[in-house]
């Protein structure tokens, strides 16, 4: 199994930390991982993206131009990465702020109302974990118990009391993912 994923959105949405939690979760189940962030001018312009690879084998290139899955959280990233999803791959996005939805017919497309649901949960910081939950529902590359272990590893201990909230957010995402196009 090899999963090549791009997560792309605005800085502050938790894009990089979502990737880090996935990478840590992969380590918890003894897989090979890589996490490669954008750190260049696009980051300074407000957008952020990270390429995460989780694999049973040694990871070759940490930098890719085609992906098994894409999690898209703003229009700029949709414009850039929709075409980089491999045919038959997965595109998951939050419709909030997306003016031009994806048009491809050769990929599986899903939505998750992450922004709306995080407001309903009363804590907008749960946004990235809701989206992550939706992704895990579509692509269960890591087990939930390993995600919890991954959270423990990637979060500072003083935030460990928030882990149950993160678990709730993941479940919220798993329950609310909407299928737009399934091949």
């Amino acid at each position: 199994m090899t999963e090549e994923l791009i997560i792309a959105g605005f800085g502050g949405q938790g894009v990089l930390s979502m990737g880090k939690i996935l990478a840590y979760s992969g380590i918890m189940q003894d897989q090979e991982v890589s996490w490669m962030p954008s750190y260049g001018p696009e980051m300074r312009g407000g957008t952020a993206n990270v390429t995460v690879i989780v694999s049973d084998e040694r990871v070759s290139s940490p930098v890719l131009n085609e992906f098994d899955s894409a999690i898209i959280l703003n229009q700029q990233s949709m414009d850039k990465f929709e075409e980089q999803v491999k045919p038959g791959g997965v595109l998951l996005y939050d419709p909030n702020g997306i003016i031009n939805p994806p048009t491809r017919k050769d990929i599986n497309i899903y939505t998750i109302e992450g922004s709306k649901l995080s407001r309903e949960m009363g804590n907008t910081k749960t946004f990235n974990m809701i989206v992550f939950g939706a992704y895990l529902k579509i692509k269960p590359v890591v087990k939930l118990e390993n995600v919890v272990l991954g959270l423990k590893k990637s979060l500072n201990e003083r935030y460990h009391h928030l882990i149950p909230l993160n678990e709730d957010a993941i479940k919220m995402g798993q329950e609310n993912v909407v299928s737009i196009l399934e091949l």
Binding site: A23, V33, S34, W35
Partner: peptide
């Protein structure tokens, strides 16, 4: 280089 410096791995 910037890739090896910035990426995270095990």
């Amino acid at each position: 280089d910037g890739v090896i410096g910035q990426m995270m791995e095990k």
